[in-house]
Each structure stands twice: as C-alpha cells, then as structure tokens.
C-alpha cells in the first residue's frame, strides 16, 4: 500500500514537471517550488546528521576544545544574515576560499598540467604505422589547439595555419561532446519513461 501511494505521488509529480513541455503553467510552478524546498530541507538535514553531529558536536561533548575554533568560525559565517556585522562573515569565507584555492592549485598542477603534458610525450617511430599515425595526430592536435589559445601573436601566416588546424581539432571534439550529450539526455528520458510505464502503470 505505501508503495502504491508512493509510486502514484511520484507519477503525478513526474507528469507535473513534464507539463512544462506543453507550456509554463500553475502545476509546473507548484511542483518546481516544492522540489526546491524539498532539496533545500534535505541538504540541511543531511549536513546536520552527517557533519555537525558527528564531526563537531560529538567532539565538543567528548571534550575536544580545539573544535571550538571551527564552531566559532561557522557562527561568524552567519553574520552575513545580519544587517550590520557582515564583515565578520569574511573571516570564515576567507579561510574557506584559501583552503580550496590551495587544494585546487595542487590538483590542477599534478592531475592536469603535469600528468597530461607527460602523457603526450609520444614517439612516432614505434614499429606500428597505425600507432605512429595516431601518435603524430595526438602531438599535432595538442600543439595546434594550444596555438589557437595563444594570444600573444596575431594568427597570420604559419601561426594562422596552425591555429586553423587547432580549431578543426576543437570542432571534432565538440562534435564528440555533442554526441555524448545527446546520449546522456536520451538516457534520462528513458529512465523516466521506464518509471512511468513500468514501475507506476505496470505496462512494460
């Protein structure tokens, strides 16, 4: 019984969102706002259960005095809601921005920049002509695309030709992205249809 009620609610809400395809309407707007509220409430409850309770509260109760520092910073964050005293919220904001900037710096450096440059050190003399051609194309593709994103010189003459090749590589990669995006969107629709006609209406 609760499953039938649940599935019916889910089915009706699915149709409410789909109704937007016909045109923007009251039912859609209601469902949309309901969703935003649900999601926001869900996030707060989860932050409470999974972060504040185990990682802050339990530690404070257990006598971990150092945990007062993040507690104080977290409280300062909420001064943003006050008409005055907003500047205090910049303390925790500053700390957070700094921490993420630091971690992202390391991440992009080791994960993207260095590792990707290293992976493109390729030979065009490997004994297999297919690999040679492919490696050659990888080298040329990376270089010409980088030339396209080089702004310190006019794109004329030889540089212009290289950057033109770069744009062709870019367009092929955008075509690939387009194809994959179509795939993603179709999958999501299939998922909903399977729910509507299978789980809810039991027609499949």
């Amino acid at each position: 019984m609760p499953e039938l009620v649940g599935n019916t609610l889910a089915g009706l809400l699915t149709l409410a969102i789909f109704s937007f395809l016909y045109k923007d309407n009251v039912v859609y707007k209601f469902a949309e706002h309901l969703f935003v509220g649900l999601a926001a409430g869900y996030y707060v409850a989860f932050q409470y259960r999974t972060v504040f309770q185990p990682n802050l509260w339990d530690r404070l109760v257990a006598g971990d005095i150092v945990s007062f520092i993040p507690l104080a910073l977290a409280i300062l964050l909420f001064t943003r809601m006050l008409p005055s005293g907003q500047w205090l919220s910049r303390w925790p904001m500053g700390a957070m921005i700094g921490a993420y900037a630091g971690l992202q710096l390391i991440g992009f450096l080791q994960g993207d920049l260095i590792a990707q440059v290293q992976a493109n050190i390729l030979s065009v003399n490997t004994g297999s002509w297919v690999t040679n051609v492919n490696n050659f194309l990888l080298i040329v593709g990376v270089l010409t695309t980088l030339v396209y994103f080089f702004f310190s010189t006019e794109h004329k003459g030889a540089v212009g030709a290289l950057s033109k090749a770069g744009i062709y590589f870019l367009m092929i990669s955008f075509g690939a992205s387009y194809g994959f995006t179509v795939m993603a969107r179709m999958s999501l629709l299939i998922g909903r249809l399977e729910f509507l006609f299978g789980d809810w209406l039991h027609l499949l």
């Binding site: 493109n120 270089l143 980088l146 310190s152």
Partner: peptide, 21 residues
C-alpha cells in the same frame, strides 16, 4: 601565454627525443 609557449617547446623537443628513442 608564456607558460603555454614553454609547454609547446617542451612537447616538440620531447616528441623528437621520444621518436629517437
């Protein structure tokens, strides 16, 4: 941009070296 130039030069040199083993 200058860092990109460094990388491009490195990649060209490295590709030649790699081809020579």
């Amino acid at each position: 941009d200058m860092m990109k130039l460094v990388i491009m030069v490195f990649l060209v040199v490295a590709a030649i070296a790699a081809t020579m083993g």
